[in-house]
Design a protein around this nucleic acid. Structure first.
Lengths: 298, 298
DNA sequence: TTTATTGATACATTTCATGCATTAATCATG
DNA sequence: CATGATTAATGCATGAAATGTATCAATAAA
């Protein structure tokens, strides 16, 4: 049983005339006759009542006519779906990310990607930076956001965003009139700090303070920048956070630029090497575009 | 796009190994490679990631895999349905009948037919005898029940049942002790009669009375034997009905055999000549069987 | 480095649908 | 009633397309 036969059958079922049907199919009449009778033989039932003057569908033919049309439509649709999937227009993409990517970068990327690929299902998972790397390697996610460096050679990374640290100070702070703050001016301030565990930021800040010649006095530790800001607002001390955190709102606190030895922190997108999925490529393209626009905007 | 190609694709998608898949398909490996790449070309997207060591489905391939399996299953099912329809095991059959067939004959036929062909949809329509004939000719129904004769040569009929008339008399009738009644004994009784219009029974009864030497005194006319019985019960007169009407129940009235010139009435099944539908043939077969058993039972 | 495995390619072969010519059967027309 | 036209089926030669055998290229394992 081949689709060609079904197409012949459906056309003949519509025309009910071997000559006309053959013409519509761009073949001559004899092969159509042959194919139809071969089909009838294969099914083991007459599909057309035919005299030399009249062609009509049998009950069996009528049933098959309906089914065959549906099948042909399904085939066409399946091919179309596969074609679009090949161009990265449909499918599923799993994305893993750490908290720091959620402030400005990720929302923009997701928004653009959804606009360009409305039929792609995005599966989003928040996780720690190290978990992002593991998930990429294990194949649990197709693409992830993390802070470089990532050691694994099977994972490719590309820095999307470089952002400075900013100081978070209370509204009544002595820094409230300053446009920027030198890092060593903070030497005597109580610090609200990232948890040392899985945060590269902790290392960056501690190193920078060391270079500036002091050891920060840490009064509180937390993973979440939002919590830091709340604590600053409550007067517990000052904090250093990445610039993008400002996007979450700044009621009750002030953000100030930092001068001194603090490096920029980086957010990178990462994916499994040898993953030629067109969806992944599309996603990376959108991510790069969004990052470019974001960078200029900052 | 042909089903053969889809079958190759599905098998390869299951095996993920050209050699094994080819073996399962009873072909050698090269044609499989060719067919798959031809399919990829046609769709315009890679369906497998393949190195010389590993074969894996692409996202597009995975989608098509699902669709293709479903399509192949649908094709198999469609062929099966058509095959069974060819044997008269599935489909639709429209049956038209007149009131008189509904007492004993039709229920038995339908019950047997439904038991033997559970997947055949029966469309039932009650109509007058003349309408049955018209509906057969027009193709509105496939098979009908009527009282012969039917004039049309395009319609074949076959008598299924011959039944006598019986007299319906009130319980307090002077005939209550009689085992049978001679037709001419009814000469002075008030008659409850079929409507002359479309009832052959009217003609039969009137003719018989005439032969018996009297003109019945008609006090009431109705189409429905049930109504006649009600009227008899109410004391309006006596009636002559076909024997099978007794099956509807006889509370309050008595049924008595008639002797005399009254002929049997016939119920026939009728169908369009040149209707080779296997369903029709099955139905006729069941009808004949049911009629034979019914006849002996009466 | 060697050997085995696996998918792709080259070419001859076979299979099978197709087209042309013709036949048989039915319907319309004079 | 006979003739011609129409339509589906059949016979036969042709051609296209899939198949099989042999082979190559690339990778992984020993």
């Amino acid at each position: 049983m081949e689709l060609k036969t079904l197409r012949y059958f459906v056309t003949l079922g519509e025309e009910l005339h071997f000559g006309r049907a053959a013409r519509r199919l761009h073949i001559s009449q004899p092969p159509l006759s042959r194919q139809i009778s071969r089909l009838e033989e294969e099914i083991g039932a007459k599909l057309f009542y035919r005299t030399q003057r009249h062609v009509e569908l049998t009950p069996a033919g009528e049933l098959l006519q309906r089914d065959a049309s549906a099948i042909l439509a399904n085939v066409a649709e399946a091919m179309n779906t596969a074609r679009r999937a090949g161009r990265g227009e449909v499918g599923k993409l799993s994305v893993g990310f750490f908290l720091g990517a959620t402030y400005t970068l990720l929302p923009r990327i997701l928004q653009n990607f959804r606009a360009q690929h409305p039929e792609v299902k995005l599966v989003l998972q928040e996780m720690g930076i190290t978990q992002v790397l593991d998930a990429i390697i294990s194949g649990e996610i197709d693409v992830g956001f993390l802070r470089p460096p990532s050691a694994d050679p099977a994972v490719l990374t590309e820095v999307l965003l470089r952002e400075p640290f900013v100081a978070v100070v209370p509204q009544n702070s002595r820094f409230r009139t300053a446009k920027s703050i030198s890092l060593k001016d903070l030497a005597d301030e109580p610090f609200i700090m990232y948890t040392p565990g899985n945060s590269i930021l902790y290392t960056q800040i501690m190193t920078a303070c060391h270079q500036a010649g002091f050891q920060p006095r840490i009064v509180q530790e937390t993973r979440r920048p939002i919590t830091m800001i709340s604590l600053v607002r409550a007067g517990a001390g000052i904090a250093l956070v990445t610039s993008s955190v400002q996007a979450t709102g700044n009621k009750g606190v002030l953000f100030r630029k930092i001068t001194g030895p603090l490096p920029m922190t980086e957010i990178a997108v990462a994916w499994r090497a040898r993953n030629p999925s067109p969806l992944l490529q599309s996603f990376l393209k959108v991510a790069r575009q969004a990052a470019r626009r974001k960078s200029t905007a900052t």
